[in-house]
Each structure stands twice: as structure tokens, then as C-alpha cells.
Amino acid sequence: MSIERRFHPRKDVNFSVNIVLNNNEQQLESTAVNLSLSGIQLSLDKASVDLILEQAGHPAEFQINLSDNSDVTPITVRLIVNRRISQNEFLLGLKFINISAEQLTTIEMLLNH
């Protein structure tokens, strides 16, 4: 029997997420796999993961857009887990950093959708 040690339960999701690197100079497309109030897991290819690791520093921190709505502020995330699924598929576990009330509302909306 496994014990759930998470602060917030995860919900399986499937929607597009834009990853923002280099102060909006570069964006990557990814797919959200699951979401909680404290973080998100994204599915990416090897080239995208390599680019993130190259550009985001250590520990890797960058921003993501959970919505196509340009009024929503991007959320800063920190890479916690980099899991290789296959030769070209990776799952990145990201923790939300310093989220605002507006960003929390967006996350809650996606969780209740």
C-alpha cells in the first residue's frame, strides 16, 4: 500500500502549455499530463528538455503559460523531476514558485474543469 505524501492531490489533465524561456524570447509547446495546486507535470520531447536544461540555469527555473489568454500572468516554475519515458519522451515535474492570487484562480479553474 502506497502512502500519498503530497500536499495537494493531482488531477489527470490534457491541455497545451507554453514554456517561456529567455525573457519571452523563446517559447516551446508542451502538454500538461497532471496538475495540482502546487505543481504540474508536462510531457515533452528530448530536444525541448535539452533546450530547457541549457537555457534555464540550475536549478532550472522558467515560466509557463497555462492559458492562451494573454491577460494571465505566466507562472514561474522550478524543475523538480526529469523522468525519461522513452528514447524521445520525457515527463517534467514542475513546482509552482510564488504564485499570485490571480494565478491560483487560474489553476483552480483548470482543476475544476
Rank of each mutant, 00 (worst) to 15 (best):
S30Y: 00
S36Y: 00
D50T: 10
V49L: 15
S36F: 03
N34S: 03
D45N: 15
Q26W: 05
E29G: 10
Q27F: 15
L21Q: 09
I40S: 05
I40A: 10
L28N: 06
Q55K: 14
E25F: 11
S36H: 06
N22C: 13
S36N: 03
Q41D: 10
K46G: 02
E54L: 12
S36R: 00
K46P: 04
V33M: 09
G39F: 01
A56F: 04
K46M: 07
E54P: 02
Q55W: 09
D50Y: 07
N23G: 13
E54V: 03
D45C: 08
L35H: 04
N34P: 05
L21H: 09
V33C: 08
V33T: 09
E29L: 12
S38A: 14
S38Q: 14
Q26K: 15
Q41M: 11
S48E: 10
Q27K: 15
L37F: 07
T31Q: 14
V33G: 06
L44C: 07
L35K: 07
A47H: 14
Q55S: 10
L42P: 06
L53F: 01
S43Q: 12
Q27Y: 13
S30P: 07
S48G: 06
N24A: 14
D50P: 03
T31W: 05
E54K: 13
S43F: 00
V49F: 00
E29S: 14
L44W: 01
L28K: 08
G39V: 01
K46S: 12
L51H: 04
L42K: 03
E29K: 13
L44A: 09
S43K: 15
N22P: 04
L44T: 03
V49E: 12
L28T: 01
S48P: 05
Q27M: 15
A56D: 01
N34E: 11
V49S: 08
L44Y: 05
N34H: 08
N24K: 15
A47I: 09
S36V: 00
N34V: 04
K46R: 11
L42S: 02
D50W: 01
L21C: 11
N23E: 14
S38D: 15
L37T: 06
L44F: 09
L37I: 03
L53M: 10
L44K: 02
A32L: 02
N34D: 15
K46V: 07
V33A: 11
L44M: 08
S38K: 14
S36G: 07
S36Q: 02
L51N: 01
N34R: 07
D45L: 00
S43T: 05
L21F: 07
L37E: 15
N34F: 04
V49G: 07
S43G: 10
A56H: 02
N23S: 11
I40N: 07
L42R: 00
V33S: 09
I52P: 03
L28Y: 04
I40F: 08
E54M: 10
L21R: 05
E29T: 11
E25G: 09
T31E: 12
S43L: 13
L35W: 02
L35C: 00
G39C: 06
L37C: 09
Q27H: 12
N24L: 06
L44G: 01
L51C: 05
